[in-house]
Amino acid sequence: MLRLSLRTRRSLLPYLFLGPGLLWLIVFYAIPLVNQLGVSLMTGNPEQGYTLQWHWATYSDAISDYSTQFGRSILYAGIATVLCVIIAFPLAYFMAYKAGRWKNFMLLLVILPFFTSYVLRTVSWQLILNDNGWVVARLQDVGLLSNDGRLLATTKAVIAGITYNFLPFMALPLYVSLEKIDRRLIEAATDLYASRTTAFRKVTLPLALPGIFAGSLLTFIPACGDFINAALLGTPKQYMIGNVIQSKFLNILDYPTAAALSFILMTGILIGILLYARVLGTKSLREAV
């Protein structure tokens, strides 16, 4: 029987803990990823089947044919991310500094939407933004919306749905980042005759940047690939690249183009993450999350 030394066993222990997670990633991520790469290089049709022909032109065709949807996805996700920062920062700031004994209750309210189906939450926005609903009526009363105007099936509705659904992904990292700030730093700034506004701008905001960047990633990345909000709250004019991929996979059965679009989207997201890691540093990202 092979007996390992204590030093060898200690050196192998991290790999033993890493093994199950690594196996999971290989089986359910790496292998399907390689499989889809092969699918993206196939040619054929649903009736006769697809064969691997290393057809790299699928990628260039996908970019040229669906550049509008790619641009729309980036635009919608970018606007939603900015709105999430604007909404989540005051919320996270209040929870971190002012909520007191209500802090845990407010955190529960932030994560409470996760207890409901994503699709159900989006469908509820159809009722909120309905042409005969309370929101449209009030906006028409104050003149922000014409009498025949509508919110549902518009770009505004899609962006509002994305913002609502991904708001907790921004609020939670921001709260963690603000909660970790040493209050004595802010007190020191005010003791040195800095106003509350200056202390916030010079101390609080820079120290909260890791949370802002982490929340932006957690919001922007899934928002780029989202298709539920555009399908339920918009029209084909608002369709994002996720809607195209879904249609190619499930309806048209054009698997090579769908796989190529997925890889193009994933590559763009990975490039964004690498740029982020280079500018901010992976340590700050890990601490913020």
Rank of each mutant, 00 (worst) to 15 (best):
R201S: 10
T155N: 14
Y175V: 09
N147S: 14
C224W: 05
A153V: 08
A223V: 05
K103N: 11
K103C: 10
A208R: 00
K202C: 08
M170C: 09
T116W: 06
A188N: 12
A137Y: 07
T219L: 02
T116D: 00
L144M: 15
G215K: 00
N229I: 05
N229K: 13
A194T: 10
S117V: 09
L207P: 07
G149D: 09
F220N: 02
A153C: 07
G211D: 00
P222N: 08
T219N: 10
F227E: 02
G211P: 02
L152G: 05
L145D: 07
S177L: 08
R196P: 11
A223G: 10
G161N: 06
I128D: 00
L218Y: 12
T154Q: 08
A171W: 03
T154V: 08
L107K: 09
L207C: 11
I181F: 09
P210Y: 00
L129R: 01
E187R: 10
S146G: 15
S124L: 12
L192R: 06
S216C: 15
T116H: 03
L129G: 11
T219F: 01
S146H: 06
V136R: 02
R150F: 08
N132W: 06
L139G: 11
L185D: 04
Y118C: 02
Y193T: 15
M170D: 05
D131K: 13
L108D: 05
A189N: 03
I212N: 02
A160V: 15
R184H: 13
K202A: 14
Y118N: 05
N165S: 14
V110D: 04
R184M: 10
V142W: 12
D226L: 04
A231E: 11
N104S: 14
R150G: 11
P222Q: 07
L120W: 11
N147Q: 14
A231P: 00
P168E: 06
D131R: 14
T197W: 14
L167D: 00
L167G: 00
F166K: 06
I186M: 13
I221K: 05
D148R: 13
S146P: 03
L178C: 10
D182Q: 11
I111G: 07
T197A: 13
E187I: 05
T122N: 09
R121L: 10
L205R: 03
A208P: 04
R196S: 13
G211R: 00
F169M: 12
V136N: 03
G161S: 07
S216V: 15
G225V: 08
L217W: 08
K156G: 12
G161H: 07
I111D: 04
P168G: 11
L112V: 13
I221W: 01
